[in-house]
Design a protein around this nucleic acid. Structure first.
Lengths: 345, 345
DNA sequence: ACTGCCGTCTAGAACGTTCTAGAAGAGGGC
DNA sequence: GCCCTCTTCTAGAACGTTCTAGACGGCAGT
């Protein structure tokens, strides 16, 4: 059989099938499908009609193989993190108008970050947007030698030269939370930290310096936490094991999930929030807005973060001279129902 | 320059680069990279070393282009639905051991189902796993003529011949919920439905027949709802507008998100749950397990659903004769804190 | 009538991989 | 010596697309 296929017989239709049907060359069909210049209006119409009739669909993989641009943005995210899925929505919204496709690669219990990134690179993504990556900075720097890399929400210190960072001013967020609690009259304010999680170090530092500025050095207390509900619950159980007089009157949790675990444990133990203890979260995920949770929290500007991450990637790809250094987005405290003045006594 | 590249000069290394470095043919490197039979142990080692040194990474797109198997499973899901993201985790876990890659395509506010599916097909996925698809059944049937399609959680009636369906026995789940509430002593049990959402019709029907079987035909009441918190909140406001004597004593919501909206609205209005009204959800997403929500709900067997969906797709691809008809997984009621006997009065 | 240009179209070579044939060499049995 | 088989390797053609270079008219300007 020569290379003049007539009708797709069970196989996927290709440019050649369309070309045969429209009676033109493969190259011309390619021109029409791409909407490129170089085809007359009449043939354009004829080709499109033929394509429609046999259900032709361009094959992105072949397309990418040939043109060395893939216009594909690889995004690594955690399925379990509402904050990440919110960001992904923002990334779609920012990337598609700019003519970029988005390839998602999730981090899951059975699938580590290494695996997630390998999959994106094997797919020929032109740039990587990593949401809260937890791999060593050296690994990111190494990746960045091959492809532009943006780390969202994870600060890198010292910053590797080629890795872009887009993040919220975590220290500033922690400061806002502490200021709010102090203004309410709290002094014994504890922080349940995020351990080595992205952003945790900055939130911890922001907490410490804010406490210091209020002259509350002696009240500084950091409890080991983490980014899941279970981590928050564990820290709360530690607090419950103490005499109620030595307990802090307010707690700043690493994030909303952690704060939820804290709330959970306190409520089950009959400790009233915010009556006996005030609780503040971080992220302002949709979770915190629910009325029974109604969590006071530090909001991150998700659309802005997504937009900056995509913008940075594209700028690098277009060879624009991007200024080095991170892009920092200000947070905003959202006061809801889990904070109140401390119990008098 | 002839086709004997020495070192990747800014470009991505290819098989040819590895071959040149190891002093063997391209075909042999391909054999080694695939782990196929036909290379001696010593050369195998030499090739792998060369590949390692220049940081070679196979290009899945070229790979797919050549071998007409892509071993790629396309998954469409909603970023906002915790139930979907849980399923995605299960799908990864089931697909990767079977040697299949997973391509994710999210449905988001800026990105409809049509767009999501187009992207998957353009990527040459061999089969589509659609989580709770809402497009018309005819469209699914049309897609199924091109590629195996599995609809998860959405029943199709009448079933198009080629579309596989994997779902929970939604009617049975609703029945379990009603039985539970009746056993507690409730009679006035309302259902806030999911409208046209996947599974909604079956849950509605299950509710109706269960009520009928308990002789509670006069108490049947279906309120228009939906699958988001807002839909639940709206239905709850309707109930709050009524005299408390004519209100139902229990509510079965379409899903956990909807139930959360109901809880939210009731609590804000000072109506105690489960004191005055009992509430039951559906899905058993992680949300419902949180202590302040602590929602009684109908659990879907997520790992099993994922496993069946992947298994079905692969069976079709392997040309196994799969029995027609849907695969139905039994649900399981999880009793938590939002249900109790009705207030005596 | 020659030249040049523009609009339309086409042939054929890439892209990085896998697959099909078959070659080269080593050994074994007669 | 010859024939066979087995292992290890290679050349070259796919796969479906885009890109480069150029062909073929028609129309204007000299």
């Amino acid at each position: 059989m020569p290379t003049t296929p007539a009708v797709p017989d069970g196989k996927r239709p290709t440019l050649a099938h369309v070309a045969a049907r429209a009676g033109v060359s493969v190259a011309l069909v390619s021109i029409v499908m791409r909407g490129a210049y170089g085809a007359s209006a009449t043939t354009r119409e004829r080709v499109l009609k033929a394509a429609e009739e046999i259900g032709y669909r361009p094959d992105t993989r072949a397309r990418v193989l040939r043109s060395n641009r893939s216009r594909l943005l690889g995004v690594q995210f955690g399925l379990r993190h509402p904050f990440h899925t919110d960001l992904v929505e923002g990334i779609y919204a920012a990337a598609e108008p700019a003519g970029y496709q988005v390839a998602l690669s999730a981090v899951a219990p059975t699938r580590g970050e290494r695996q997630a990134v390998e999959a994106l690179l094997a797919d020929r993504c032109e740039a990587l947007v990593l949401l809260g990556p937890e791999v060593p900075a050296a690994r990111l720097a190494h990746l960045a030698t091959q492809v532009p890399v943006v780390s969202v929400a994870r600060r890198l210190r010292p910053a590797p030269p080629a890795v872009d960072v887009v993040r919220t001013a975590d220290d500033e967020g922690a400061r806002q939370a502490v200021d709010h609690l102090v203004a309410l009259g709290h002094r014994a304010i504890a922080h349940i930290d995020g351990g080595k999680a992205p952003g945790a170090a900055d939130r911890r530092r922001g907490y410490r310096t804010a406490m210091h500025r209020h002259g509350l050095d002696d009240d500084i207390r950091v409890l080991p936490g983490g980014l899941t509900e279970e981590d928050g619950a564990r820290a709360a159980r530690t607090l419950l094991g103490e005499a109620s007089t030595s307990r802090p009157s307010a707690v700043l949790a690493f994030n909303d999930r952690c704060a939820t675990g804290v709330l959970d444990t306190l409520l089950r133990a009959g400790v009233s929030v915010p009556g006996e203890i005030s609780v503040v979260g971080f992220d302002d995920t949709s979770l915190s807005r629910l009325a029974h949770i109604d969590l006071t929290t530090v909001a991150q500007d998700v659309p802005r973060l997504a937009e900056l991450a995509v913008g940075r990637s594209i700028a690098r790809l277009d060879g624009e001279a991007v200024p080095d250094g991170e892009q920092v987005v200000p947070p905003r405290l959202v006061v809801r129902g889990t904070t109140a003045p401390p119990a008098t006594g």
